[in-house]
Design a protein around this nucleic acid. Structure first.
Length: 277
DNA sequence: CGCCAGGCTTCTA
DNA sequence: TAGAAGCATGGC
């Protein structure tokens, strides 16, 4: 475990001795789009149908207004806290390039988000930048998401499937609106099953997600990695293509393949921050 | 004002 | 079947 103990303190839940967990690096490295910084190492976000404020305080990480039960049923998995990132990073550091990326942002964790939200978020990320994608997703949630205490949940596929491109206009998703609607319909009609995609062999899982209009290999891989827990999956965006071409012409090391998606997150962040060309 | 954005679909040779 | 254009939009 990457924390020594969980402790209830009033309404809050405290992760004592939380290691390998940098909130800024994790929540603002292009894997999730509904988090904002609200204070000193403090972030507010909406995920899994809940609003959460989370803050680092010294050695600890505090989840405000979270019960022990809610931590265990919701946030422990979301923040991938069962995985030992220390061991993982030790493995990655056998390679000099991976070591450099890990040392650049050693507190990155790969989030396990809701599958449907991850799928939509990355459909919308295409030919888009991260800042603007956040705005689009926020408008989509206000437009079609269920009101919850403190904000709006991510819209369900059922709700979106009943809408039209014109209905979605206020969210200003551009050409992506029709893709979102097809994704919603595919899920509702069970042309695509996210539960199955989570378990199928990778090629078949990708093939299923790519039945959706507007979903290609990269978006499918993002949904699998960030939403369906497939940490062996490596989305190849422009930044990763540059890294692979320059540093790993023969592919990522064989010993990294089971968790190559997590290695990808360190490499992606490093490449993007360095402005690698 | 152009340029470009964690791509995908469609058109063309 | 590879390669380029078109796509909507707004941050910079």
């Amino acid at each position: 475990m990457d924390y020594t103990a969980g402790e209830v303190a009033g309404n809050d839940y405290i992760l004592k001795g939380a290691r390998h967990f940098d909130l800024a690096a994790t929540l603002d490295c292009g894997q999730a789009f509904r988090w904002e910084q609200v204070g000193e190492d403090a972030f507010r976000g909406i995920a899994l149908g809940r609003v959460l404020e989370i803050q680092r305080r010294g050695e600890d990480v505090v989840l405000y207004g979270v019960s022990e039960e809610e931590f265990h049923v919701r946030w422990k998995r979301y923040f991938d806290l069962d995985r030992e990132y220390g061991k993982l990073k030790e493995l990655f550091c056998r390679d000099p390039v991976l070591r450099q990326a890990v040392e650049y942002a050693p507190g990155i964790r790969v989030l396990r988000q809701d599958g449907w939200e991850a799928l939509c978020s990355f459909i919308m990320s295409q030919n888009n930048n991260i800042v603007r994608n956040k705005g689009m997703i926020d408008r989509l949630c206000r437009l079609a998401g269920e009101p919850i205490r403190g904000g709006y949940a991510f819209p369900t596929p059922q709700r979106l499937a009943a809408m039209t491109v014109e209905d979605l206009a206020p969210a200003r998703c551009g050409f992506r609106a029709k893709y979102i609607l097809d994704a919603a319909r595919a899920v509702c009609e069970e042309r695509v099953s996210l539960d199955q995609a989570a378990k199928l062999p990778l090629p078949q899982a990708r093939e299923m997600l790519m039945r959706i209009y507007g979903v290609g290999p990269k978006v499918a891989d993002c949904a699998l990695l960030y939403g369906l827990g497939r940490v062996e999956c490596v989305p190849m965006d422009v930044w990763m293509k540059r890294v692979m071409e320059r540093c790993f012409p023969k592919g990522l090391p064989e010993w990294a393949k089971d968790t190559a998606g997590i290695a990808q997150q360190y490499l992606f962040h490093y490449a993007r921050m360095q402005g690698l060309k």
